[in-house]
């Protein structure tokens, strides 16, 4: 499984949101997409998911351009979780998670997939609760369960942990890492530098629509690159062999 985007350019109102961006995602990889607000991260994710058309450039999944792939097939291969997910009706948790099976139609293996998703996100005990009555963290877990229920090979996730408490932030990063280990390719847009450093296999740093860094966290989340991209000074160090990167003061 290999997702490759090359030469992606997206312009809106003569303003370049993405400028000749190349990104790739391989099987078993957990890749973090970082960058300041307005760098084009969400747009990049949407282009990868096939939800937005790039002005130029191609996105290939296993060698096939996603624009030539059928909508249903693409939906089965790639799971996407947007930043904001409103839930319009007070559906039960189980129903929301089951929506992830839509691309697969009426298949009998569906129920098991839903159960697995509930298990993995530890939301099985919430299954009959109405989504509207859940706390922020619980809701996010349910939405991630929905994503996992698709059983896609590629997971594209847009800022899933920004609003969660530290417990859930760590838990979710563990969850995504285990998904990657199970064979998926996971691409996460995130802000937390330390979590990216600790959990991601690779980090892509976007700034002003350009890729300014792409590689192991240690080589991308350097003081100078972070300073240039975010305009903040950071403190870095190592604890138990894992590197932390803390924004310290304004540049």
């Amino acid at each position: 499984m290999r997702l490759e985007a090359q030469g992606i350019t997206v312009a809106k109102d003569s303003h370049l949101i993405l400028d000749d961006v190349n990104v790739c995602l391989g099987k078993g990889e957990l890749v973090g997409v970082l960058g300041p607000n307005g760098a084009g991260k969400s747009t990049l994710l949407r282009v990868l998911a096939g939800l937005e058309m790039a002005g130029t450039g191609t996105v290939m999944l296993d060698g096939q351009s996603i624009s030539t792939m059928g909508t249903a097939e693409r939906a089965r291969m790639m799971g996407y979780l947007p930043q904001k997910t409103p839930v319009s009706w007070p559906l039960s948790v189980e129903r929301v998670v089951a929506l992830g099976r839509l691309p697969h139609g009426d298949d009998p293996a569906g129920n098991e997939a839903v159960e697995r998703a509930l298990e993995m996100t530890k939301t099985a005990n919430l299954r009959d609760r109405s989504v509207g009555t859940l706390s922020g963290g619980e809701r996010m877990r349910v939405l991630v369960a929905r994503l996992l229920a698709v059983e896609a090979r590629v997971l594209l996730v847009d800022e899933p942990i920004a609003a969660l408490d530290p417990y859930f932030q760590l838990e979710f990063m563990e969850l995504f890492r285990s998904q990657a280990h199970a064979g998926c390719g996971v691409l996460i847009v995130m802000h937390d530098l330390t979590l990216a450093s600790r959990f991601c296999d690779r980090v892509v740093l976007l700034s002003g629509g350009h890729v300014v860094g792409d590689g192991a966290p240690g080589t991308v989340l350097t003081e100078s690159l972070v300073q240039d991209a975010y305009h903040v000074n950071v403190q870095t160090g190592v604890i138990d062999g894992e590197r932390y990167v803390l924004p310290w003061d304004l540049r």
Partner: peptide, 10 residues
């Protein structure tokens, strides 16, 4: 679940 999620679900 919103237009984007729906689109991603095919």
């Amino acid at each position: 679940l919103g237009e984007e999620t729906a689109a991603s679900l095919g």
